[in-house]
Nucleic acid binder design. Structure first.
Length: 617
RNA sequence: GGUCCCGUAGCACAAUGGAUAGUGCAACAGAUUUCUAAUCUGUAGGUUACAGGUUCGAGCCCUGUCGGGAUCACCA
């Protein structure tokens, strides 16, 4: 059992024995002792002073005595202002280390027989992926890994928004202006190729709108519909959507195309398939670069018709009600939400209808216990409504639904805007970060024994490590700021910093093998140093960190843990001689074993974040 | 306007209600005859937006105020 839980249990027992009050061991606070005090772990005594009817220090003394007598791992204690500082025996730590290096699954829990679905990425097919998608993807991916580590079977899915007005804009634009160009003929990455036609469409629309604004028709619309005191400029800004739907010829053409798509016009479907095919080929490349994959794909072109049955159900159960015009509604005002329409008067469905239907279908397909949706916090309200509705419908999986809501990635100047061309493209960023890694690896001359391909792969790992760590170290809920001018650091609190500590350890692993060093005498080591103790205490916490990250859907905990451990290792490496000048053979064996343990945990924790370790740097 | 989220050093981020609020970047000063310096050590930088409250103890919980963002579509 973990030493911290041992202590928690022992303290709870002590309180019960001494003061006759039952205490929940999980609520006993046991923290690593801060550097300025003596000890390994500290127990906060304040919560027990009431039942003890004693001063904090007197209670601490009694509990300390009890623990010292009953827990063999405890070698001594001291008391400072209501904190009981406990010293753990070296024998315990040596045994802990020994057990750890033999446990390749350290930090992971056995399979729990439960399934969880994680939905992430879910892009539109009219544009390439951008920085916002990267955050979404990395969150989804690392959460999947973390859930798997604590025993779940994880099904990774995405819903691809492959239909609708947006993709029709790309299609129409390419057909009108494309002159038969293809990704192959232009050499442009195929998802970017499709995105470029979308951008062109928007430009053409803007041009059309500007010309229209000069027309007599526009003038009379302005005069008749303007609000008092509204300038012409403001009016036309607000009017843009309405204009596109009612006056624009391009708008009319797009709507015509959408109608044709919906009525399964063969020519339109062929075009749609061709262009979406290009986009998927591009996405696959980006996903591959990011090192992620999916177990099951859903397409909105299949799911957008879903939800009718669930609405029928809701009507029958009285959860929904019908208005006079035939539209179907849901009243959530008693839950602090609004009334919500779920089916239009003409019988067509909406976003929420689809999501209701999709939820039910996926439960039918997958039969998971939990469903995690990784979606930006803009949609918090939508998911509140969605989950509340499913709960009221009595769906059996409703209690297992979770919206992993995350903040947007912003630039120092604010949100990324397509129109202003400030969107940070995913592929560009990946390329840039690998370029920086390559540049900074010059003058290092370390990778000389490697083949060119191995060198490239190491640089890719370093660059991607920097990017992934940068994103995933931030708490999901907080919006994060990315400055493209400064891009991503490779020194300090970064992925490469952690990777570098692993590389240092990796060298020792080679040495151990080459020199066939006997590590078994490590257990005869007798004087654990503070730098070594720091590492042991940190490693000991790893399983708890993983578990907490799973409970809170928060990979940043794992990221910060990894950094903390790497930092402690670098200090250890700097302060103490591990190999060549280790004081004794036992010391050397211990420090090498400790290094192996750190390397094992770092590789595991970074693996949860989807970050690979390079062999050399 | 209603609801929700966020305000921590110049910047980017940490901190189960626990000890003197940490780490990195940037700045300055140092450390390679040593297991590679993508490393390490030091200096400087804070009224945790503000005002109350609860508590043995508050950056964290409660109330209010001020800033910033999101959302309140028969869009997705």
């Amino acid at each position: 059992m973990n030493i911290v839980s041992t202590l928690q249990n022992a303290v709870a027992q002590a309180v019960e024995q001494l003061y006759g009050e039952a205490t929940d061991p999980a609520k006993v606070l046991v923290n690593p002792t801060p550097p300025d005090f003596t000890g390994d772990y500290s127990v906060v005594i304040f919560p027990f002073v009431k039942v003890a009817k004693k001063s904090p220090d007197a209670a601490a003394a009694e509990i300390g005595e009890y623990l010292a007598k009953n827990i063999p791992e405890i070698k001594g204690f001291n008391i400072v202002k209501g904190f009981l500082n406990l010293k753990i025996s070296d024998v315990y730590w040596l045994g802990f280390l020994q057990a750890l290096v033999q446990d390749s699954a350290y930090g992971r829990l056995p399979k729990n027989g439960k399934k969880v679905m994680v939905e992430f990425s879910s892009p539109n097919t009219n544009k390439p992926l951008h920085l916002g998608h990267i955050r979404n993807i990395l969150l989804g991916w690392s959460c999947s890994n973390i859930l798997e580590a604590v025993g779940y079977e994880v099904v990774k899915t995405q819903i691809i928004n492959d239909r609708g007005v947006a993709i029709c804009k790309s299609m129409l634009s390419w057909r009108k202006f494309g002159a038969g160009k293809t990704p192959e003929s232009t050499g442009i990455k195929s998802d970017h190729f499709v995105g470029d036609w979308y951008v062109l469409f928007e430009q053409k629309t803007k041009a059309e709108y500007e010309i229209w604004q000069q027309s007599a028709e526009a003038k009379s619309v302005f005069e008749s519909k303007r609000k008092p005191e509204q300038s012409e400029k403001d009016f036309f800004k607000d009017f843009k959507n309405k204009w596109f739907n009612e006056y624009s010829t391009l708008g009319a053409e797009v709507r015509e195309m959408l109608l044709k798509w919906e009525s399964h016009d063969p020519e339109t479907l062929a075009l749609w398939k061709k262009m979406n095919g290009w986009v998927y080929a591009g996405f696959d490349k980006s996903y591959n670069d990011l090192g992620v994959s999916f177990d099951k794909l859903y397409y909105e072109s299949d799911t957008y018709v879903l939800g009718k049955d669930i609405v029928e159900d809701g009507l029958a159960k009285g959860v929904f009600f019908k208005k006079e015009d035939g539209s179907i509604w849901l009243d959530l005002t008693d839950a602090g939400l609004d009334q919500k329409v779920v089916v239009r008067a003409d019988g067509t469905s909406l976003y929420i209808t689809q999501d209701l239907g999709t939820a039910r279908m996926r439960h039918h397909d997958l039969g998971c216990e939990r469903y995690v949706y990784v979606v930006a916090d803009e949609q918090n309200y939508h998911f509140q409504v969605l989950f509340e509705t499913l709960k009221r419908l009595g769906e059996p999986y409703a209690a297992g639904l979770h919206h992993l809501s995350y903040g947007l990635v912003e630039l120092p100047t604010g949100r990324m805007k397509t129109r202003e061309g400030t969107v940070v493209d995913a592929d560009d960023l990946i390329e840039e970060v690998i370029r920086i890694a390559t540049e900074q690896s010059k003058d290092r001359g370390e990778a000389e024994t490697l083949t060119e391909a191995e060198k490239q792969d190491n640089l890719r790992r370093v660059g991607m490590g920097a990017l992934k760590f940068f994103i995933v170290k931030v708490h999901p809920k907080k919006k994060m700021i990315f400055n493209p001018e400064e891009s991503v650091d490779l020194q300090g609190q970064t992925g490469p910093y952690i990777q570098y500590s692993y590389v240092r350890i990796n060298k020792f692993m080679h040495l151990i093998e080459k020199e066939s060093i006997d590590l078994s005498i490590a257990s005869q080591y007798t004087s654990i140093q503070p730098q070594e103790k720091d590492l042991l205490v940190a490693i000991n916490d790893y399983p708890n960190v993983v578990q907490k990250a799973a409970e809170e859907y928060d990979p940043s905990l794992v990221a910060n843990f990894s950094y903390d451990l790497a930092k402690k290792y670098h200090r250890f490496y700097h302060d103490l001689s591990i190999y060549h000048r280790a004081e004794t053979h036992e010391t050397r064996a211990f420090r090498l074993t400790l290094s192996l343990a750190v390397g094992q945990v770092l590789k595991s924790s970074m693996g949860l974040l989807g970050i690979e370790m390079p062999e050399v740097m």
